[in-house]
Each structure stands twice: as structure tokens, then as C-alpha cells.
Simulated scan of single mutants.
Amino acid sequence: MKTIVICSGGLDSVSLAHSIAADGNLFRLVSFDYGQRHRKELDYAAACATRLGVPHHIIDMRTIGAALTGSALTDDIDVPDGHYAEDTMKVTVVPNRNAIMLTIAYGIAAANGDEAVATAVHGGDHFIYPDCRPAFTQAFDTMQRAALDGYADVALSTPFVHRSKADIVTEGARVGTPFADTWSCYKGGEHHCGRCGTCVERREAFDLAGVTDPTIYEDPDFWRAAVADKEGA
């Protein structure tokens, strides 16, 4: 099935791209510049496309992103440290981000004769990000089939939606994903900070998967205390 992957340059989407490429179904990547403060991730997405030998579409959504205010990923708001927790990590929500990106990706797929749009939403995102939940992805697929009825037949692929980030690390390792060439950190410094929610989740996922983490963290040991705090909450 000819597939376009929405690729942020992060561990999840790059692993997904490598997994689909291993099956011979990867035809292109699409990434989005929505004014995120950690835009260096786009370089990692571009490197992924080059490595896998597929076209890479970078969509300029900066004017749209400027209107989606109130998120620590786009505005001058401090990114909280610690494990994902609803009371702190809601500040990282960019409203309707996935819905907007998926809509554009579907249009690109239809225009190029692709048969599926793949996104790396996973089970760990569900309780904070509403547009990563199964109810959303199922409804979105239904809506897009109606939107393209009679013009194109494009399916939504969400292979990780019921799986954990540790599962993604396991799958990524199976297909040879170069984890060091992925970017997750919300703070966008020279190295991964090791303290924000996505860094903690990333480090914990490698530990749970039993896979060596090649990532350089500014604070490589913070994740243990963050996980302990969450488990003790």
C-alpha cells in the first residue's frame, strides 16, 4: 500500500517511516513547520527522507501556527519538567494540530495517488492529546473517506495507536532505526534536555524496551526521579 508518513523528525515518526520502508510501502514523508520553537526536528525529518530515498514535503504552516496560541511549543511559555502529567503537560497542546496536519497529508496523498496516510500517534499520548486518541483517528478516517469519496481512496494507518512508546522503540530497533538521528526534546537546545516530559518518556521507553539509548541528555539521570514521582503520585 503506497503510504505517506507524517514525520516530525522524532523517535516515533522516524521509527514508523523505517518500519513502513522495511515493508516496501513508503513513498513520501511530509513534515510541518508550524512555528514550533524546536524546529530543528525538521532537519531530522529531512535526513530521514534522504536516508530512505523518498520525497520530502515540508509544509509552511507558520501563519496558522501563529494563531494557535497558548502552547509552550509555539509561545514563550516555559516547558515543564517531569513525566507526562495532565496538570502540567496540557500546556504543550497545540489545538487541533494533528487534525490540520492530517487533512493536508490526505490532500497530498490523494494528489499523488497514495493509498494511506500513516501517523505515529501512540497510547502514551491519549490522556493529554485528544487528537491522538483512537476515537479521533477513527472518526477522522471516516470523515476523510467521505471528503474524498469518488476521487481517491486513502486510508489512515495508525499502527502504534494502541501501543506504548517502549513498543515503538522495540519496533524501531527491529528495522534498524538510527535513534541518535531523531529529535524529541521540547526545549530544542544543543542536546536533549533530559528533563521535559518527552525526554523523560523517551529515556524510560528505551529502558522498558531493553534497548540501549544513544541519546545525549543534558541531565541523563533526571528521568528516574521523574518516573518514581509519577508512580508514587
Results as ranks from 00 to 15, higher is better:
190 E>P: 01
172 G>V: 09
148 L>W: 14
98 N>R: 07
176 G>W: 10
168 I>K: 00
141 D>Y: 08
113 G>Y: 03
156 L>G: 08
86 E>F: 11
122 H>W: 07
94 V>L: 07
95 P>I: 11
128 I>P: 02
190 E>M: 11
126 H>Q: 08
121 V>E: 05
94 V>F: 07
81 D>P: 02
116 A>C: 06
118 A>C: 05
166 A>P: 09
181 D>L: 13
134 P>F: 03
168 I>Q: 07
158 T>N: 12
165 K>C: 06
82 G>W: 08
117 V>Q: 04
126 H>I: 02
117 V>Y: 03
115 E>S: 13
145 R>S: 14
148 L>A: 10
167 D>E: 09
167 D>Q: 04
91 V>Q: 02
80 P>L: 08
85 A>F: 05
91 V>P: 02
143 M>Y: 08
156 L>C: 10
157 S>T: 09
136 F>E: 00
176 G>A: 12
160 F>C: 02
121 V>W: 00
123 G>S: 09
92 T>G: 00
190 E>V: 15
127 F>R: 09
147 A>H: 08
146 A>D: 05
108 I>G: 00
100 I>T: 06
124 G>N: 12
166 A>Q: 10
137 T>K: 01
127 F>D: 11
86 E>R: 13
104 I>P: 00
101 M>L: 13
156 L>S: 10
155 A>W: 03
145 R>M: 11
94 V>R: 09
169 V>P: 11
141 D>R: 13
108 I>C: 03
184 S>E: 14
96 N>Q: 09
109 A>T: 06
134 P>S: 07
97 R>G: 01
80 P>E: 06
113 G>R: 04
187 K>R: 15
176 G>P: 12
120 A>M: 02
112 N>L: 02
84 Y>C: 07
